[in-house]
Design a binder for these strands. Structure first.
Lengths: 257, 257
DNA sequence: GATAGTCCCTCACGCTGCGTGAGGGTCAAC
DNA sequence: GTTGACCCTCACGCAGCGTGAGGGACTATC
């Protein structure tokens, strides 16, 4: 029977000798036999088990769990695999997203395009995104996702120049809001009217009809669906959201009057 | 100036309060100000810095390095980003590969197909793969990668039934080899001849010509290019490789005679 | 059979990035 | 003045090893 020492196993498998010691310590991978001199000797079975361990470790499963999985034959491997598969697929997607984000960042640093701020954060924190969407639904009702989809598609269909113009408007509007908020300008001030007017035109265009009485919903919809919004909203904290809501309501009231 | 407490920042950013304490401790993210009561207060700048931190953390950059990056304006962000991008892209690819692997595993467990053993390990350890390829080149010369590509394409062009047959043959052959190795059967024994004969036919078919005198190269080529081989080779250790080489040489000698 | 070089062992402490209390102030509201 | 929800500072714990330190064991060579 061919037996291998730690070093050999380490070389074959790519893990460190220390790691093998560690796996022995925690009972994850015991050597087939131990020599009189205390040397660890591994056989084929241990190598195969090690492969299994590495596969699972690759999936970021804690070593203790790996041991449980490998040692418990009743363990539902299939279900575990499905779970892992979904986790991995999500990760892969997120990574791909991050790659695109970085590509845009690089392009931006090269001055090739003016990157939209918030896209920096795409791919970060899936839970955060889910939480945000839940918040949207809670705040604006179950139709919100559909509305968002609508305006997203609409947005995508714009020409680059139109997108740029809209982004500029959005930025101005947000800056003005933030300033107003910091300086204590009341939400129903008319100071923002010119900007809001331009914004209203955009909304009309986006919805293919005159800005409706429920302009608040329309504005919020468009606005919230814009990638810039998420991070800006987050960066400015909840106070901004309240202010924003108030401003929107005031705007809606004036429209209705 | 709007100031936020730890809890608020935590909620907005999705990190824990403890993490914020930690970031403060290690000087990665200091609060804008500290109250007389010892409370930490964060402003907009800190939130933006936090976003930057999270982006970098997402890329698995150690916190100390993130601090260095954010604090050193001379740091070549562009180059760092490119590096990170490549790392991420590799990771994304590896993850996608693992997902496919798991899909096949699941299908296999469902009895939908006989999965090829070694595909379990696709995606594991990129360095290992690179090392293995280096080993191939060293052992068989610089043409090896080209040969491998050739037989890979050839393999892909086979019908499913043909693939299955070949896989079965390969498995039998390997099992027989492994058994022979364990039982001390000498490498030039004729015990494996029937299998090798079938294998030779395959090689002829794969190369579209009679099995050449340098059958060893041909066989090894085909064999080593097969996905099963890598992990089996690894699992059996170096001894197997030696045995395999000897068996191949003996086979080549008999062919030549 | 001495010597050198390369392996092997067992402690044992260190590192990152926080989680998780313990023990105790603070603040706003009722 | 008393809740309740915050905030603070220690300080220990955890995974998954890396990295010596200190000391045998094995192999080859002279």
């Amino acid at each position: 029977m061919k037996m291998l020492t730690v070093k050999q196993v380490a070389k074959i498998s790519g893990v460190s000798v220390r790691a093998l010691h560690h796996y022995d310590e925690i009972g994850l991978l015991k050597p087939a036999s131990t020599g009189r001199n205390g040397y660890r000797y591994y056989g084929r079975d241990e190598l195969l088990r090690l492969q299994q361990i590495l596969l699972h470790r690759e999936l970021d499963i804690p070593l203790g769990d790996i041991r449980a999985i490998l040692d418990d034959p009743r363990f539902d491997q299939l279900e575990a695999l499905r779970l892992q598969r979904d986790k991995l697929a999500a990760e892969a997607k997120r990574y791909a997203q991050l790659v695109r984000t970085i590509d845009r960042t690089i392009a931006d640093l090269n001055g090739e395009s003016a990157m939209r701020n918030a896209e920096l954060y795409k791919g970060i924190s899936a839970e955060k995104q889910a939480e945000y969407e839940a918040w949207l639904v809670k705040k604006y009702g179950g139709d919100m996702p559909r509305h968002i989809e609508t305006s997203k598609r609409k947005y995508e269909s714009l020409s680059q120049a139109e997108k740029d113009q809209l982004n500029t408007d959005l930025k101005e509007l947000e800056t003005a809001w933030a300033d107003a908020m910091r300086n204590g300008v009341p939400a129903d001030s008319t100071a923002l009217d010119p900007l809001l007017g331009r914004f209203r035109d955009w909304v009309s265009a986006m919805w293919n009809r005159p800005c409706p009485p429920d302009a608040f919903a329309g504005l919020a919809d468009l606005h919230l669906s814009h990638p810039d919004f998420v991070s800006r909203y987050e960066a400015l904290g909840e106070g901004f959201s309240e202010y924003h809501a108030e401003a929107m309501k005031a705007y809606a009231r004036r429209l209705a009057a």
